[in-house]
Design a protein around this nucleic acid. Sequence first.
DNA 1: AAGTTTTATGACAGTTTTGTTACGGGTATG
DNA 2: CATACCCGTAACAAAACTGTCATAAAACTT
Lengths: 212, 212
Amino acid sequence: MVCLALTNEGYQCHEAGNAHEAEGAISYAQPDLILLDWMMPGVSGVDFARRLRRQQETRLIPIIMLTAKSDEDDKVRGLDSGADDYLTKPFSIKELLARIRSLLRRVQPQDESEIYQCQGLVLESPAQRVLADDKQLEMGPTEYKLLKFFMENKNRVFTRGQLLDHVWGNNVYIEERTIDVHIRRLRKALEAGGYDHLIQTVRGSGYRFSEK
Amino acid sequence: MVCLALTNEGYQCHEAGNAHEAEGAISYAQPDLILLDWMMPGVSGVDFARRLRRQQETRLIPIIMLTAKSDEDDKVRGLDSGADDYLTKPFSIKELLARIRSLLRRVQPQDESEIYQCQGLVLESPAQRVLADDKQLEMGPTEYKLLKFFMENKNRVFTRGQLLDHVWGNNVYIEERTIDVHIRRLRKALEAGGYDHLIQTVRGSGYRFSEK
DNA sequence: AAGTTTTATGACAGTTTTGTTACGGGTATG
DNA sequence: CATACCCGTAACAAAACTGTCATAAAACTT
């Protein structure tokens, strides 16, 4: 039922009948969100949620717990296990969809329609362009994505490996030194507006975007 | 009531009676999370939530909406307005706390929350930098690691051997006198912010980080 | 007060890391 | 099909960092 409704809404859906199946499906499909039933044969939903939270690869995937119980203590346990939200059966598809939208919005804050700003530097995601004090800056697609990622995560160091994962994609084989070149290109593009100082080198670690 | 309960749990709390007050309190206190009543005099909770979502500084602050209405359409509207979660009055403090914990965990994922502070000296682990009264201090990687170790273990003397083990790694062959040089370099870096007195020599033993 | 031990400091050379430029191949665009 | 653009890599230059030493300055002993 749920799967049908979600597919109808344009989501891509995978089902699993128990924790073991789920584990396989998750590592295969890399979902953006997990709906988890409280009652599962074998490992319970709560235990499974806890396990997902402990693993690096799945820690950040939001979880909505589905449960028939309406007991309050169970609610609390469900949330503390690491679930991000829960729904008591019976629930309406409408509410489920709203909660899913809400969670996905949080996890992917940019959503193609965001505008990032840092001092006079503005990155308009919908228009896919970068303005420095109202003057448009020219840069390649990769530099744009790199800058976008940086502006989404200000004040944090990223290693070249992390940047490859997040900007290029998860399984690419590219020399880490290549990052340096793209950083150089990005800096040169920002230079035109005088904002190249926002891209900072952290020796021995990687790069950082920060106004300080 | 809510404020009291949260304070009791160790959270720092600020109250506001309407949207305008809230705006001031938010820009002043920079909260980690916002509890928002659906019904507010003047600007409604939903509209206020939307406004918070549009602004760069507040966009990422999670919002929990509180409401007396239990109508489902309102729930949906509440979530779609940008609130991250939704609670219907009357709600139990226990459930509120669980939802707050859940949201905070999502926003600050692994973050290690590793920010060390000592007087005006701040070491930001995620950004891998050191600020003295908001001014960035320049230092090499080794000095950074050294300072981090010291700030993790304030008021404790460490021999040069111990420092080598913890900061450099367990099996390195390095002259113990080299420590002196790095201490010197660290002190020089801290000097720029006037915090070099925090690194103290303990003659015959080693070094200590302390504010006294 | 002189002698001894311990720490501070500045300089140096080797090493590692990063910046920069140039180039060949690939892909899209007209 | 030609042109323009972009990407990844390599090679070299520049910069930053590291560990060690020599010497000066303190701190402690006798």
